[in-house]
Write a protein that binds this DNA or RNA. Structure first.
Lengths: 140, 140
DNA sequence: CTTCATGCAAATAATTTGCAGTAAG
DNA sequence: CTTACTGCAAATTATTTGCATGAAG
């Protein structure tokens, strides 16, 4: 269980109930877009406005509390910021699963960037396909 | 020089002047978003409407003529569809450069997907950072 | 206290749609 | 010819903003 209060304060943001609720939803549900986050959050905090969601998703992404996962053909999803990893994105159900990259793999990308004199900040590896769960649904 | 006419027909789309102009702009300029594509296209075809750009970007992406490159914090860019490759995305100037992945690297991702019983369709590897060009600008 | 965050409503921007007219095959 | 495509304007959806109020530190 993460401590969202200190996470926010370390990034210079006040720990409001609204932010806590947004982080709790994202922390539990994984990768969700703005509308999904809003739909979940108002269940536990009905008066929270959509404008506040927008403002906070933006400021928390910029300050490094959240990270944005842009997805082909969909609205961006958001997750609690963490070390680089691979997203397995199901193009059938839209579900996203995290996979931590092998060191070998990361090194290759680091080397590529270094050889290009590219000051690498973030590696985004998104794998699109159909998850095993959806393959079963399709068959039946 | 690619043949956009046959490219469109192979995907079941009529080869209109509008589509040809959109493809020419994307082919020459590389990765551009909707607004940039529109701004370029009306230079050579002033009557082409923004709605037509939208309709065509969508249908050409769905049919596999174009592919969408979603970018953190920005509107998606579009490129002529080609084999999987790595994008070096400069977070300073926004420029995107293509790099073809080493076979070693691709295999690792293939294996990861296979071990998860994930029916892999598209590998998206986006490297975000500052390109060598922008590093020089920042220093000066 | 003092500053920053919220919530509303209103403004703006982005995208989609319907449909009559046109062009492609 | 026939079907698909375009362009316009209108509708819809998405996102941002200003400002008075309220909460956090």
């Amino acid at each position: 269980m993460m401590n969202y209060i200190s996470m926010l304060k370390e990034h210079g943001l006040k720990a409001t109930f609204q932010r806590m609720h947004i982080l709790e939803v994202i922390g539990e549900c994984g990768h969700k877009d703005i509308d999904e986050i809003y739909a979940e959050v108002i269940k536990i905090h009905p008066s929270l406005s959509l404008a506040t969601i927008y403002k906070n998703i933006i400021i928390m992404s910029q300050s490094g509390v959240l990270s944005e996962v842009p997805v082909v053909g969909k609205k961006s999803k958001y997750e609690i910021a963490k070390s680089d990893h691979i997203h397995l994105i199901c193009t059938h159900c839209g579900n996203i699963e995290d996979k931590h990259a092998s060191v070998d793999n990361e090194n290759l990308l680091d080397k590529l960037a270094a050889s290009e004199h590219f000051d690498l900040d973030k590696k985004e590896i998104n794998l699109y396909g159909v998850c095993s769960h959806c393959q079963n649904i399709k068959v039946s």
